[in-house]
Design a protein around this nucleic acid. Structure first.
Lengths: 205, 205
DNA sequence: TCCTTCAAAATTATAGATAATTTCGCTTAT
DNA sequence: ATAAGCGAAATTATCTATAATTTTGAAGGA
């Protein structure tokens, strides 16, 4: 099934997944012809895919010198965490009035899935889904898109840190956020969310 | 002279300027062949330019149905203002420790330019420069890029509202921000900045 | 041994051509 | 009149080919 109709989009998605999962290392050059050959396509859609990756911050391109997988310094990781914190809190504040009992229950369900996740990948997926479930009702598409891209950047860092040994941490913050939201304490929920996102971006021990 | 080396980037910049200034209306279809002909180029770089505009939120693209100049509803204008407020405050907080006396003086100079601006375009340019001068020292490139894109979106709204009659408002908020920063009251400066950005996005009377 | 120079190879960027899809306007039937 | 159907024109998406630039690596000189 075509995930996205246009070839360029499919290529972009595949490459994005590869970069986020850490399967290709930061700094790796992405050669348009090689990628094109791999996908059985010409390099025109590949170039467009590159542009999308660039916009998402997953790749960097220097004119006439090609595009490489974006690297991430400690400073950049912190930057992304700070941006996420600011924007997710904003989204939560705007989503709060639209959060129903059903949505909160659903979020709790997703949170439980995350606690039982067998590996980092599954945990990250549940984590992302949890956040999105709570924030989506804000109805601000541009904001949600920005948050998505930032979460992808965060995930890169997460995967690079502990791909091997890892154990599912029962997520106290998530639970606390739900408790606060159920009690109508939006500000408090936002404060926990903020701390949660900022600390989540800390370096692995 | 070539502003940006690659044709695609030049085309993107030109089109972006055209959209922001309001010279092309929201909803206008952008035909790759027409644009290509206008620039004396083939449509390959044009398509790449479209992708960039899309990423900046200046155009929307539906697969196989082309790309059109992005529209903006009242809700979207508010969304952009909220995002700007959140991110600019974050940038200011991180920039504050690096703000020297010289930078603040420079900002004041720019602010005066803005007060004497003959038209909206000039005022907006000075306004943008003022913000960037204060925020750039945060040293967070991704954040600054995001703010740039949001400011562009804000400018679109501004230009669409009062292109004709307009008088330079001596910007009290800007001055107040500088006073607070000079006094080392970063939090207070942030609060003014936040209010300033949010109210700046209000609809024309 | 190390640096410079220069040509071959690789790679990017753009152009031109083609296939596939959508849009538009006309005809025709109700 | 109005709506459905059909075909031509326009448009998007892709491919193949070409020009321009960068990288690579080897040869020659300091």
């Amino acid at each position: 099934m075509a995930k996205d109709d246009t070839l360029a989009n499919q290529i972009a998605k595949t490459l994005a997944e590869r970069i986020i999962s850490g399967r290709v290392e930061p700094g790796t050059p992405l050669r348009q012809d090689h990628v094109a050959e791999e996908f059985g396509a010409s390099h025109v859609p590949v170039r467009e895919a590159f542009r999308r990756l660039e916009a998402q911050g997953l790749a960097v391109s220097e004119p006439r010198r090609g595009v490489r997988v974006a690297g991430f310094s400690r400073a950049e990781v912190r930057e992304v965490a700070e941006m996420r914190a600011a924007l997710e809190v904003l989204a939560l504040q705007n989503a709060a009035p639209h959060l129903t009992r059903a949505i909160l229950d659903q979020a709790e369900e997703i949170n439980n899935e995350g606690d039982n996740a067998p590996d980092v990948q599954a945990w990250e997926q549940a984590n992302r889904k949890f956040h999105r479930t709570l924030l989506a009702p804000c109805g601000m598409p541009r904001l949600l898109k920005a948050i998505d891209d930032l979460q992808a950047a965060s995930a890169r860092f997460l995967f690079s840190g502990w791909s091997a040994e890892w154990e599912a941490p029962t997520d106290r913050d998530h639970s606390a956020i739900l408790v606060a939201l159920r009690a109508g304490q939006v500000e408090h929920a936002g404060a926990i969310l903020r701390r949660h996102v900022l600390l989540g971006g800390r370096s692995p021990r």
